[in-house]
């Protein structure tokens, strides 16, 4: 498979403080890559650069022209009906049929004509996914899209993302805090530390993955170790990195 993303010697500094440090990374076409790391390790900065929202960088980044993103908050325009949000920015007149098709794919076509404020958190996140996928991206950037969802909704939306990825076959870069989420979804899990890719783990497990499989548990322990979390405490402590002292 040829590469979808090629990053060579990427660095980014904010007011003299280096956030990304001479970073190299390749993502193959259609590959699902999860990016883990503590808050402030530079993973969101990397994602913004790939999205083209930040170009004050050193080094070289090659990305597909067709790419889109979904963020932690759905960022829907409150003054446009749901379906108009989905096709916002596409060339030509707003294509309602196309919007409905995309909304149907995320299982929320019945909410096409309501205002975004009436959606629940999970529904809004689905619309945000539909908006990203209707552009048929070759690279989909996901910035903690499940972070603000409750546990039950999160599980369902994660499953949805896995299905959509299989269907569309685009490369995905998922930024997350959640080790299990990364292992459930990704082909490859990267751990970022101090502005570099510190670890690169290929997840060879068959899908759908089983959280309780011994291989899964082993990989999780290894990732948590890299992140500086000792999984000897209770499961709840280890699960989310947010709560662990860095």
């Amino acid at each position: 498979m040829p590469n979808s993303v090629e990053i060579r010697g990427l660095s980014r500094a904010f007011d003299g403080k280096t956030v990304l440090h001479d970073l190299d990374l390749d993502i193959r076409e259609g590959e699902f890559v999860a990016l883990l790391g503590h808050s402030g390790c530079g993973k969101s900065t990397l994602l913004r650069i790939l999205a083209g929202l930040d170009d004050e960088i050193g080094g070289e980044v090659t990305v597909p022209a067709r790419r889109s993103a979904a963020f932690q908050s759905p960022r829907l325009l409150p003054w446009l009906k749901v379906w108009r949000n989905v096709v916002l920015g596409l060339p030509g007149r707003p294509d309602r049929a196309l919007a409905l098709q995309a909304l149907d794919e995320v299982g929320i076509a019945d909410r096409a004509t309501v205002w975004p404020k009436t959606l629940s958190g999970g529904q809004a996140q689905r619309v945000s996914l539909a908006r990203a996928l209707v552009r048929e991206p070759e690279l989909l950037l996901l910035d903690e899209p499940f972070g603000a969802l409750d546990a039950l909704t999160r599980g369902r939306v994660q499953q949805l993302v896995a299905e959509l990825w299989r269907l569309h076959g685009c490369a995905i870069l998922l930024v997350t805090h959640d080790v299990e989420e990364a292992l459930l979804l990704a082909d490859r899990v990267l751990v970022m530390d101090e502005g570099r890719i510190a670890h690169d783990l290929t997840v060879g497990l068959p899908r759908p993955r089983d959280l309780t499989a011994p291989e899964f548990v082993t990989l999780r322990a290894r990732l948590l170790g890299w992140l500086g979390v000792t999984p000897t405490h209770s499961e709840a402590d280890a699960k989310t990195l947010e709560r662990t002292p860095s």
Binding site: A51, A69, R75, L88, G89
Partner: peptide
């Protein structure tokens, strides 16, 4: 919102 809209083209 501006960022998201720019991202959407």
């Amino acid at each position: 919102l501006v960022e998201a809209a720019r991202m959407m083209g």
